[in-house]
Amino acid sequence: PGLLEPTSCLVRVPKSASTLGIAIEGGANTRQPLPRIVTIQRGGSAHNCGQLKVGQVILEVNGVSLRGREHREAARLIAEAFKTKEKDYIDFLVTEFNVSL
């Protein structure tokens, strides 16, 4: 009891700007096993949405887990999720805590 349970939350980011406007670092086989948001750029979709925060760790993108994926693979998934015309939003499952595998 009293241990903080790592809570995750689903953030829906509408594609309201021409860019997503975040930067991530980390991925499998690095000190940061899951991609962490290190920058949120003013005027980007993420900034407009207002629910993503620097420091949050991304667990899933549109329901696809990033667990075990190296940085470039995770980055490709996020880029494709923003590029696709199928959805006008991206769903990010994020957590505040550094989730170890």
């Binding site: 975040i22 670092e25 086989n29 690095t30 000190r31 940061q32 290190v38 996020i78 923003f82």
Partner: peptide, 13 residues
């Protein structure tokens, strides 16, 4: 396996 050299990779979107 030990962290590889590209561990500080950052990607902007």
């Amino acid at each position: 396996s030990p962290p590889k050299e590209y561990e500080d990779e950052v990607t902007f979107f």
